[in-house]
Design a protein around this nucleic acid. Structure first.
Length: 888
DNA sequence: GTGTTCACG
DNA sequence: ACGTACGTGAACACC
């Protein structure tokens, strides 16, 4: 054998490291996976760096080892394996099996001993070894052929130990390590050593005498203090040395060839990772596979069977018109498109159950066409257009909204979107990080999608078909059919329409604001530099921290993980302490306005339409809300007057139109009243009272007429707190009262609204039983955090259990209203367009003349979206832009 | 890419 | 004794 490298891992040590280094991590079903994840990541990293020819992972076996024969208290103080870690060992071994790395364990021996034995055999065969572990004892194995990599700081870094490095760090040779431990001891293994002898003395003694035995035999030559200690404890020291000595002759049949590493079994690995929900690792592997195939050329020796489908590449006009007919007769077709918003549709694959498909043949017929090349294929786009338009053909898509954007480029319509696998998968688990088709294929069908080419698109069509059937059944079982077919699926096209319509903007006004802010910012910056006595980057929290807390010596209020906190709450507290502080606050505010809103929005104006076309994300939030990006139009300033002015920029799309806004009044608290059935809360809403005033009266025990503005403000914070899963600490911080006082408010609240208290307790209890919480329309969110061993994580889970049904039900309601409003606007042929949704508010771009009709229908659909035990109330405003809207 | 800060409901 | 409201996205600094 020549110049081979043997990678030997200490499975137990690394699993423990990973467990403590990776914060709680679990599958959506609550199976703890943090140690498996950390271990696997580390394994990948090491394999990539070392590229070993041989590999093995050693584990401890048996609670009692030969060391206990000598010393029954060996490792006695070590806490047992944590409950959340123990079940992860079998999973780690599954990972290793899929990696084709042998696992070695031997009854009565620790991983160290196996590692020592393996490394010894390797040395005899002239093979160099790399040992990876968190256990310092292993350093005694270091030799010219054997290196040890110790984990440092969790799992992210490894420190390499050669003989030289051991000498540098400890001042001893690797072979002296057991002697060293014999003197110094090791509290973590409950090895006593010699009390009073530390690293320095031990190092000096071993340098002088070479070994512990020699030290003991020369005990009379030692200085008095050391002599007494060694005399008293020499037996204990020799025992400690034996305990710390790694057994290098474990009786095992070892054939080094058995450890030759052939590389991973990618199929097994992908299926395991999809079970463990290791999305990132799945991507890493898929990437690796792609690179591998590329490197190996067109005829790769495949180690993994990527999903293969047979398909027909259609070009002829006759074939294409037959395809349209085929789709019609089949009644439903799965469609995968490739292309971009700029070019439109480049290629398409269609999957359908054709009447002629024999039971022997693949049950799907798949066709591939390229409308992107009109010269060679003029009829393809026309065929697609007819299929998409046909209301009698059900279309199955993944990410229908993106498909609608592609179609729009060619001016095509889509009728009868019957299933969207992306949206379906989101409903089944809204917490998952993404809903990409490749991930769904892995998770639900256990297949790996090919990455590129015609085959990839054909496979996507096939997978969309199969997933549609599978996910539809899962939705049925989860009782989410109404939510899916009445709300989320029709919403796809509604959102597409909103995005495409876009929001008109006043570009000149935006540019004006930018210039003004520029000037103000420069002036403030100048004053800040004057007061600081130097120029620095005010945007840098680090530099600002240095100026405030070191140069100007202002008191440190709060720290972040890495340095001083300079957030608004800190600066407000320091505002009186130095004139620079209020300037920094103002600078921050204006800077935010300019960069995020003024300049940020301007950069995203579509040059063709002159409007902003946000993207609404339907499969992102854990609660069921939408989110918005590029630009985010759901966080346009309103609370501060300076920021609020930004809203002037948002104008109707043509002369004679107005901006109409309609927002739900207190929808979350109304939902709370409905879900809890609390009589007090129900009454407040039924009588149309101001809810915060009513709460103030209840909490402070005064008449409604006696409630002051201050009391109302505090009560408002209490109401918010209830919806978020209140804590006295959070409430106290928010309204600046003592924690005791906050606790009193909460107690009073629950005394007056006992139904709410019962609802909270009931909701958490049910969440624990089922593992998930639900909304009014049965939207579901799994809460593995409820079962965490970590109290903080668990309490976080409890707060989410309360908040999600409320926030999510509000999302259900407004989405239902959006679908119905959109439908009726269309049916009536109105020119009004719904352009934005901001969680509890809808915004319309409306011809002034349509006001009576539109305001009636919007109010009707919003207020009657669902019938609750309290009325839903909508406030409407109207104006020439989003800033100047006035109540109607 | 991660951390900090801050805008919204 | 601990560390705390729920849900998002964007800009910037710094590695």
């Amino acid at each position: 054998m020549q110049a081979s490298t043997f990678l030997i891992l200490d499975g137990n040590s690394l699993a423990h490291r990973a467990f403590h280094a990776i914060p709680h991590l679990a599958t959506s079903q609550g199976v703890a996976t943090n140690a498996v994840y950390g271990f696997t990541n580390m394994l990948f990293k090491v394999l990539k760096e070392v590229k070993p020819d041989l590999a093995a992972v050693c584990f401890d076996k048996g609670r009692v080892t030969f060391r206990h024969d000598h010393y029954e208290d060996y490792k006695a103080h070590r806490p047992g394996t944590p409950d959340e870690l123990r079940p992860q060992f079998p999973l780690i071994k599954e990972v290793l099996a899929a990696m084709n790395i042998p696992v070695l364990e031997c009854e009565g021996y620790e991983a160290d001993d196996l590692i020592g034995t393996l490394a010894g055999r390797a040395e005899q065969a002239g093979i160099s070894s790399i040992i990876v572990t968190g256990d310092q004892d292993t350093l005694q194995l270091v030799s010219p052929l054997t290196r040890v990599f110790l984990t440092r700081k969790g799992i992210s870094e490894l420190e390499e130990y050669t003989e030289g490095r051991v000498w540098e760090r400890f001042g001893i040779t690797p072979a002296q390590f057991p002697d060293y431990k014999g003197l110094v001891g090791d509290p973590s293994d409950n090895i006593p050593g010699v009390p009073g002898i530390g690293p320095k003395t031990a190092k000096a003694l071993l340098k002088e005498y070479g070994s512990l035995e020699e030290v003991v035999s020369h005990v009379d030559d030692l200085p008095a203090r050391q002599r007494d200690k060694i005399r008293q404890y020499h037996e204990q020291a020799l025992l400690s040395k034996r305990l710390a000595t790694i057994e290098r002759e474990v009786p095992l049949e070892i054939n080094l060839d058995a450890f030759r590493w052939p590389g991973p079994d990618y199929n097994q690995l992908l299926s395991l990772f999809s079970r463990l929900e290791f999305k990132t690792l799945i991507r890493v592997i898929r990437q690796e596979l792609g690179e591998k195939e590329e490197a190996e050329g067109r005829q790769p020796a495949r180690e993994v069977e990527t999903y293969r489908v047979t398909f027909r590449h259609l070009t002829g006009r006759e074939d294409l018109s037959r395809l349209v007919e085929l789709c019609r007769r089949a009644g439903r077709v799965a469609i995968a498109l490739s292309g971009s918003r700029q070019e439109g549709i480049v290629a398409a694959a269609l999957g359908l159950k054709a009447p002629g498909d024999s039971p022997e043949a693949p049950y799907l017929s798949i066709f591939y066409l390229e409308p992107g090349d009109p010269a060679s294929n003029p009829a393809a786009l026309d065929a697609l257009a007819r299929i998409f338009r046909d209301p009698d053909t059900e279309k199955l898509l993944h990410d229908g909204k993106s498909a609608l954007w592609l179609l729009q480029k060619h001016g095509l319509a889509l009728n009868n979107l019957a299933f969207d696998t992306m949206v379906a998968a989101y409903l089944l688990n809204p917490a998952s990080a993404n809903q990409e088709l490749a991930d769904l294929a892995l998770e639900h069908l256990k297949v790996v999608l090919p990455a590129r080419g015609e085959e990839a698109l054909a496979a996507r069509a096939d997978v969309i078909w199969r997933l549609s059937e599978l996910l539809a059944e899962k939705l049925r079982l989860a009782e989410m059919e109404r939510l899916y077919y009445e709300v989320e699926l029709p919403l796809v096209a509604v959102l597409a329409d909103m995005e495409m319509t876009g929001v008109a903007v006043d570009k000149q006004y935006l540019e004006e604001m930018s210039r003004e802010l520029e000037i103000k910012l420069a002036a403030i910056a100048e004053q800040i530099y004057q007061l600081a006595g130097e120029q620095f980057n005010i945007n840098s929290t680090r530099q600002l921290g240095y100026i405030l807390f070191e140069k100007l010596e202002l008191p440190v209020i709060k720290k972040t993980k890495t340095s001083y906190s300079t957030d608004a709450s800190v600066l407000e507290e320091l505002a009186g302490a130095h004139p620079i502080v209020p300037l920094v606050l103002e600078y921050r505010q204006l800077m935010k306005l300019k960069s995020t809103y003024v300049d940020g929005l301007a950069a995203l104006i579509n040059p063709e339409t002159g409007r902003l076309h946000t993207t609404f994300h339907q499969t992102v939030t854990a609660t069921g809300r939408l989110s918005s990006s590029d630009p985010n139009l759901q966080n346009i300033p309103i609370r501060m007057e300076e920021g609020r002015k930004i809203r002037r920029v948002f104008i109707p799309r043509r002369e004679g139109n107005l901006i109409l806004t309609a927002d739900y009044s207190q929808i979350e608290l109304r939902i709370l009243a409905h879900m809890s059935g609390d009589p007090n809360l129900l009454e407040a809403f039924r009588q149309g009272q101001d809810i915060h005033t009513r709460t103030a009266a209840e909490v402070f025990g005064v008449a409604i007429t006696e409630v002051t503005a201050d009391m109302r403000g505090r009560a408002k914070a209490v109401n918010f707190g209830i919806v978020y899963g209140i804590s006295d600490f959070g409430l106290a911080r928010d309204i600046n009262v003592s924690r005791q006082e906050a606790r009193q408010y909460i107690e009073n609240y629950f005394a007056r609204y006992a139904g709410v208290k019962a609802f909270i307790e009931r909701t958490i209890q049910q969440a624990r039983e089922k593992g998930y919480v639900t909304t009014l329309l049965n939207r579901r969110r799994y809460l593995p955090d409820l079962f965490s061993a970590n109290r903080n994580v668990r309490m976080f889970g409890e707060r989410t259990a309360i908040n999600t049904p409320i926030q999510g039900s509000a999302a259900d309601i407004i989405k239902l209203a959006m679908v119905r409003i959109h439908r009726e606007l269309k049916e009536r042929g109105l020119a009004t367009r719904m352009i934005l949704q901001v969680h509890d508010e809808l915004i319309f771009d409306m011809p002034a003349g349509e006001l009576p009709e539109v305001s009636e229908l919007v109010r009707r659909h919003m207020e009657n979206a669902l019938v609750l035990d309290v009325p839903l109330v909508v406030d409407m405003k109207l104006g020439p832009n989003w800033y100047e809207v006035k109540k109607i």
